[in-house]
Simulated assay, not measured.
Amino acid sequence: MESKVVSVSQSSKHTFSKDRVESVLLVEGLGVDGDAHSGTTVQHVFRKRFHPTEPNLRQVHLIQAELFEELEQDGFEVGPGDLGENITTRGIDLLNLPEGALLRIGPDAVVQVTGLRNPCRQIDRFQTGLLKAVLPLDSNGKVVRKTGVMGIVLTGGRVSADDKIRVELPAGPHRRLKCV
């Protein structure tokens, strides 16, 4: 299966969900042009309160569309942009990429994966019970975070639905993603 962009979303306000748009412009070192989370330093409202000068490792949020299909089987209705992601993908196992993996999106953009997104309680305000569904336990009792990955923009460019995505893994040894 070819890896591609399913949808792109952005919001100029710190809202839980983001609006689907025709395309987004990724800006090197900042994130999605016009998005509330764009910036060189942390833009997440809660984190900004305590660590305003931390580098922004969450410039772009990506989620795999396969998650929505999985959640639908459990009775949830979730679509692109609903969980606050900027880019919805198909055909990439985002959660198992190593730290530092590069996502070459469309003709120009390059996003470096920095870590996992850790969902908060707001997700249950969106749909009751969703937090538990996206944070299940594996067979060893360890939490599995399913709400996508975060990244920084290394090379800017316009990104639209149906753009191809190519993954480049960093030189080994690979480090598993942690929450950022």
Results as ranks from 00 to 15, higher is better:
113 V>N: 08
38 S>K: 02
178 K>M: 13
18 K>H: 05
22 E>N: 11
157 G>D: 04
62 L>I: 13
94 L>A: 06
6 V>I: 15
104 R>L: 13
175 R>E: 15
77 E>N: 12
104 R>Q: 14
143 V>F: 05
64 Q>K: 09
122 Q>L: 12
86 N>F: 08
82 D>Q: 06
119 P>S: 07
46 F>D: 14
173 P>M: 10
48 K>F: 07
88 T>F: 02
169 L>Y: 13
12 S>A: 13
108 D>F: 12
27 V>Q: 13
82 D>G: 02
86 N>L: 07
84 G>A: 08
72 E>S: 14
109 A>R: 07
84 G>C: 05
11 S>M: 07
96 N>A: 10
40 T>C: 10
162 D>L: 11
65 A>M: 08
3 S>L: 04
180 V>L: 09
99 E>Q: 15
103 L>K: 05
165 I>K: 03
91 G>W: 02
122 Q>A: 11
139 S>L: 12
31 G>E: 03
174 H>V: 05
102 L>N: 06
178 K>G: 09
22 E>S: 14
100 G>D: 10
94 L>R: 02
78 V>I: 15
140 N>Y: 11
69 E>H: 11
46 F>N: 12
114 T>W: 04
177 L>Q: 06
32 V>Y: 00
159 V>T: 04
158 R>L: 12
82 D>V: 08
63 I>W: 00
171 A>Y: 06
81 G>D: 06
6 V>W: 02
122 Q>Y: 11
160 S>W: 00
147 T>Q: 06
87 I>A: 01
105 I>W: 04
55 P>M: 07
165 I>V: 13
143 V>T: 15
10 Q>W: 10
23 S>P: 01
177 L>W: 02
88 T>N: 04
1 M>G: 12
19 D>I: 08
52 P>M: 07
133 A>T: 03
157 G>P: 02
86 N>W: 07
36 A>N: 04
145 R>E: 08
30 L>V: 08
134 V>G: 00
71 L>H: 06
62 L>E: 04
124 D>R: 06
83 L>T: 02
151 G>C: 04
94 L>N: 05
27 V>D: 01
124 D>K: 06
169 L>K: 10
123 I>K: 01
83 L>W: 01
6 V>N: 02
43 Q>R: 14
